[in-house]
Design a protein around this nucleic acid. Structure first.
Lengths: 182, 182
DNA sequence: GAGAAAATGAACCGATTGGTTCAACTCATG
DNA sequence: CATGAGTTGAACCAATCGGTTCATTTTCTC
């Protein structure tokens, strides 16, 4: 708490005066961090709105960007802290997920739904597609980076994204991606 | 430490006499838990050795079993503790992953390589295929279970597995799965 | 059964930490 | 200038916790 007060440029009693409790402070900090991560991710997903008819390239682009923010300092710490405090704060998972990864999945599902309507994607269930797309990227990344403790160089990251997008497109893509009516 | 000693049916100084340190005790406990989880998972993957010509069914079967152990008490606690102590024990990720998820990926890659040789799977890179297979299962599961804080009923779990295997087979499968020469 | 090795439990130590107290200080407004 | 709200820092409190001590008892071994 003293360190937190110092970093905030304020005295310890002031912190307690404003936040009241360490638990309260912790919840606020986590919610705030989740919002920041989510904002980054949403901005990335929005780029799918106008893909230049190059779906695979667009997916790889946002994949690379998503992985970059998901492996950043903030997202890694947020994930570690959430897992760490799961036992002490059972509702923390819901809060963090509701503000960050959950919304990311929703936003991605929205894009996929539009892409499906436009005939660029065969996603009968866009929510499931979004879930799996994120899993195909973050899963291997988390494994390769040893839960974020090893830095994965850009080339390997791009390879992970390429492989993930490859699998995704093979499962959900429409061959040669010309527009097609229902 | 007193609680640990009690649970072990032994006095506190005895614990220190044998393990020396809380850090040491922690490392031993984590390694042991990782071994237990890995043993369960390896046994499941071995079932892929003789799939009854029903590849999709076999994949769903081991998918369901893997998710069951990966969401159990031990695996969940192991994951939470690993993340929690990442900052204090930077090498913990390597140890745990090397003993559990890493070996699981290797074993699964072995199976996929054999399946590819037998013409049942199109896996030019079995390691990557194994990585993605696990990601397709555990990723959505972790999301739906809110990091393990919510129990996911059997039906939903099976649906996750079905969807994951579906995507996997569409990306890596060989249509109608008859045997085929190179 | 004697002697050594190990286990016991309970008290104890020192460090850390969440949180509070309080007198002194800052600074706005009236 | 007076006043009252808010801030400061430093000391302080109580609880927790990792680890140790030690006299006593148990257990193993010869």
């Amino acid at each position: 708490m003293q360190e937190i007060a110092d970093e905030a440029g304020v005295a310890k009693p002031t912190v307690y005066n404003h936040l009241g409790d360490k638990e309260n402070l912790f919840r606020h900090a986590m919610a705030n961090a989740a919002d920041l991560v989510m904002a980054e991710n949403l901005a990335v997903v929005e780029r799918l709105r106008d893909h230049g008819d190059e779906l695979r390239a667009a997916l790889e682009d946002i994949g690379n960007r998503l992985l970059k923010t998901c492996c950043g300092q903030r997202a890694s710490s947020l994930r570690a802290l959430t897992y760490a405090q799961l036992a002490a704060f059972p509702d923390l998972a819901e809060v963090v997920q509701g503000r960050a990864s959950g919304r990311l999945g929703d936003a991605l599902a929205d894009r996929f739904a539009q892409l499906a309507l436009a005939g660029h994607l065969r996603a009968e269930d866009p929510v499931r597609a979004a879930e799996q797309f994120l899993a195909l990227l973050t899963g291997p990344m988390e494994a390769r980076s040893r839960l974020g403790t090893r830095k994965v160089d850009a080339a390997e990251t791009r390879e992970i994204v390429r492989a993930g997008v490859d699998t995704f497109v093979r499962a959900y893509g429409i061959e040669s991606s010309p527009k097609r009516v229902l």
